[in-house]
Nucleic acid binder design. Sequence first.
DNA 1: CGCACCATGTAATGCGTTACATGATTTT
DNA 2: AAAATCATGTAACGCATTACATGGTGCG
Lengths: 184, 184
Amino acid sequence: MLRYALLGFLNYQPLTGYELKQFMDSSTSFFWYAKLSQVYTTLKSLESEGLLDSRVEAQAERPDRRVYSLNERGAEELRSWLARAMTELEPQKNTFLLRLFFSGESEKENLLAQLHLMRQLHQEQLEVYTHQSPEVIRQTAARSPGLARHAMLWEATRRFGEMYEEMFTRWLEETIEVVHKNFT
Amino acid sequence: MLRYALLGFLNYQPLTGYELKQFMDSSTSFFWYAKLSQVYTTLKSLESEGLLDSRVEAQAERPDRRVYSLNERGAEELRSWLARAMTELEPQKNTFLLRLFFSGESEKENLLAQLHLMRQLHQEQLEVYTHQSPEVIRQTAARSPGLARHAMLWEATRRFGEMYEEMFTRWLEETIEVVHKNFT
DNA sequence: CGCACCATGTAATGCGTTACATGATTTT
DNA sequence: AAAATCATGTAACGCATTACATGGTGCG
């Protein structure tokens, strides 16, 4: 799947593996992320499949950079992936819910401490979506007027993150209340 | 991670691989699931690590069943996993958001069709959490009075599913509206 | 002086999926 | 007569993580 994320970013402009990782970290990271090592290996395999081209740029007093760019076959692969609509819900995994599900024999205090810690973390994440992300989107979109329709969709994903964290925080408060009152 | 899910279920009672898969499908599947083949291989490796015991039950006119049970070391492993609190948010992946993020050059109609389809799917899933899941929990808890505190936490995870799908549906409606009005 | 950042990659391992293989019983 | 359920597993593959390996620049 990382393949498509990389094709998507390279559809905007040629980039190195290192830069791709940075772009991901500052935009899609809350719904798609990867380690640098995976970015490098995936770029290599995309190039060997003929979906990307690369050239090495020599730099004075810095390591050489390998810049990847999307070629026509890569652009076609991206379009065809986007055209294939999803017809089923994607199964999700959530370790925190798994733990909670099996915590019936845990100490009440440990359970409450874990729930409070999670609330803290989700509130912080909510702050990121409400305060930092809008700025990132505005700045990126400002660099080119052709990106207006893209920015609308970036904003939609940001809004998802915001609503998700709002919901998560509300659920944690509700759950803390229930555990506090009824857990023996 | 599946290891811990299996240890968790086996903490209630001895089960076969096939039964474990069924239990997962009817309870944790929205935040943890696995294929049968993985269940079997993971059980085997848990046994070889000495966390589970198994015995084969011969059956007349049915294939033999291998029943796994948690031993003291397995119970300890489960407890120690539950005791190690999470201190960071778990990164999530969501293919639908990834596609949306890169759909700036897609046809408006295709995009709206995809959003409508997703709304349909999430509304159906919401129905499952509000109508089917409470019954499953009530019935399972009714089988043994010692499961009351467990049932409280099962209910908390169900409630998460309900709130998640509610939120997702609201977000889809908001996004459909935005795309409908502003996407060219 | 040490840490963060820039920059690239390989190797080993682990977790999970898909495909393969078998076969009886029960339900439609 | 066909499909679903019960029941078990192995083999091949793919995606992702962790660890290893290197080395210069800039900042506090």
